[in-house]
Design a protein around this nucleic acid. Structure first.
Length: 572
DNA sequence: CGAATTTGACCGGCGC
DNA sequence: GCGCCGGTCAAATTCG
């Protein structure tokens, strides 16, 4: 509210000041041009005349510019006043009711449309223009302790609202609403981040899911076979809690990023109840600090997943249905990365499925790194209808399987030849020996080993998290690949209602061949993990699958035959 | 001794 | 309104 008043007074003031400054400079130049002395010799006079002429010409040009600037300024002022009047005339109508008998949000909107309600003070405008936060404001009104911060928060909320309409994204960290809020909130709360509180105020103007789930941050859940306590993602984490969650004997650990004191990122780590070898790491929030090289891959993957979530949800009219009130799963996109290189030009490397779930009201992208890679059959034919058969589970998209088929493994083998001996693994050689992991009676002393895989020894020896990191690193480090991925997701989702083949070649501007595949069958062969995860989902989720829009699998085929090089990586 | 972890208490959301 | 549950806090404890 204070910011609104400040804005209303400062903008015209600044404009007037600018105009005055412009006039002053013109006057100064006029006076300085008249200072020339007439008592010089002819040559000097000629030169001075020329100089004067050129100076006057410049001045005329400056004058014209100034006139244009004046016109622009006056136009801006006019627009500003117009907008101000418009704002007065629409947003604040139901402000008084907030103070008394608060109506429902719908009632607020209805009242806002009434033309004959009295104008209200600007101080009331903010909270009303942020109807989504009404509950928060109300609660704060009922809370004397927090009431002191009410005005301050309102200003914050207004700023957030504007920023959302500017179209911030997860990737635009510093401009992202959640960060702008989080950081400001932390200022209020002595640098203690409390997602559950800040989440109330979070919204996304162009995100269907987030509009339907305005209270929850998007999450990215990574499922990976991992024999260590946590998956090494390159970030620094501090454990701040542990809980036994319902339905899983394994405790859920809560971590916060410690790379920056104000970093809002949280992660939850929990073993899969049905397959103890599977570690489920759920990330929430976006880092607001520079990431180390080792932290970039996973962060990029999660950011991409969140971007996918946002992009997908924004196209809900084209069929992505995500319910805010019940758990649903949207099988969004299968990523099929064809890292063709010298080793193999055969078949694409699949990342079978993308899914978005809103379990527990959190829009969540699940990246399943546990499932085997799928090789498209030789008689591979597009079939959009068959893809819907893949909608039977909640999981995944980016598949950096630890049980790859040979050819698919070969296809990324070059990107996995990484001397990836992390500090984490050196330190936690005895896996999963935390005394607090009660009920975790499985033997994790051996890495999770899959059979029937002919893999290069380097890759076989790699830990699954190393593979994840290496593969995500490969993506993160290859700008053309990243661009192609982003472009492909965007173009595909944007055209998901049409003929996907029309997208063929859309990524060629990024030096990539871009193919779309339509698998003919489900890509799970079932190490049990993904299926079990699906089984964990509430029944309504499964029943909703028939209503979900299916998407083809994307294939990114590198026209560049050079294998991706990742070997220079070294841990701190 | 400082940093990191543990763990019981607490809080808020949500369903009944 | 109550209880359950997820998530966080913060004092106590452990670790290096």
């Amino acid at each position: 509210m204070e910011g609104s008043k400040t804005m209303s007074s400062s903008i015209p003031d600044v404009a007037e000041t600018l105009i005055e400054v412009v006039d002053m400079r013109i006057a100064e130049e006029d006076s300085s041009s008249n200072v020339s002395s007439p008592n010089e010799d002819d040559k000097v006079n000629d030169k001075k005349d020329d100089h004067l002429k050129s100076a006057k010409a410049k001045m005329d040009a400056v004058r014209e510019d100034n006139e244009r600037l004046k016109l622009t300024l006056s136009q801006i002022l006019k627009d500003y006043h117009s907008l101000k009047m418009h704002f007065h005339g629409t947003a604040p109508r139901d402000a008084p009711t907030l103070q008394k008998n608060r109506p429902t949000q719908t009632e607020c909107y209805q009242q806002a449309s009434l033309p004959d309600l009295p104008m209200v003070e600007e101080s009331d405008l903010v909270s009303l223009s942020l109807g989504r936060f009404s509950s928060v404001v109300e609660k704060r009104n009922n809370n004397e302790k927090k009431h002191e911060d009410h005005g301050k928060l309102d200003g914050l909320e207004l700023g957030l609202d504007c920023k959302f309409h500017l179209g911030s994204t997860e990737v635009m960290k510093n401009q992202s609403p959640e960060h702008s809020f989080d950081e400001s909130k932390e200022d209020e709360q002595n640098c203690t981040f409390t997602p559950s509180k800040s989440l109330k105020n979070e919204r996304s103007g162009d995100d269907e899911i987030l509009q339907q789930n305005p209270l929850k941050k998007p999450r990215v859940s990574i499922r990976a076979t991992c024999d260590t306590q946590t998956m090494n993602d390159g970030c620094q984490w501090r454990k701040y809690g542990q809980k036994i969650a319902k339905g899983n004997p394994c405790p859920r650990a809560y971590y916060r990023c410690t790379a920056s004191s104000s970093c809002p990122v949280r992660k939850q780590v929990q073993r899969c109840a049905r397959d103890m070898s599977v570690l489920i790491t759920t990330y929430e929030g976006t880092h607001n600090h520079p990431l180390s090289v080792t932290a970039t891959p996973v962060a990029s993957a999660t950011s991409a997943a969140v971007a996918m979530l946002k992009s997908g949800s924004s196209t809900s009219q084209q069929g992505i249905e995500v319910s805010a009130t019940s758990s649903t799963s949207t099988n969004l996109t299968g990523f099929n990365f064809n890292l063709t290189n010298n080793l193999t030009r055969s078949r694409p490397f699949y990342f079978p499925r993308a899914s978005i779930s809103t379990s527990q009201s959190h829009p969540t992208v699940v990246l399943d790194l546990t499932t085997p890679n799928i090789i498209p059959p030789h008689n591979y034919k597009p079939s959009s209808t068959l893809f819907s058969a893949m909608s039977s589970s909640s999981s995944t998209c980016l598949n950096f399987s630890s049980t790859p088929s040979s050819s698919s493994l070969d296809s990324i083998a070059s990107s996995l030849y990484v001397p990836w001996n992390t500090e984490f693994h050196r330190r936690s050689g005895a896996p999963f020996n935390n005394k607090n992991h009660v009920g975790a009676s499985y033997n994790t002393s051996q890495p999770y080993i899959h059979n029937n895989v002919q893999t290069p020894p380097e890759v076989q020896n790699m830990h699954v998290t190393d593979k994840i990191a290496a593969a995500t690193k490969a993506i993160a480090r290859d700008p053309t690949f990243q661009s192609a991925l982003a472009a492909a997701i965007t173009s595909f989702i944007g055209n998901s209602g049409g003929n996907a083949q029309e997208n063929h070649g859309s990524a060629e501007n990024f030096g990539q061949n871009f193919h779309l595949y339509f698998p003919q069958q489900s890509t799970r062969d079932g190490n049990g993990c993904a299926t079990s995860y699906a089984n964990k989902l509430p029944q309504p989720l499964i029943s909703h699958q028939k209503n979900l829009k299916s998407f083809p699998i994307l294939s990114f085929s590198r026209s560049n035959s050079t294998p991706m090089s990742l070997g220079e990586e070294s841990e701190k």
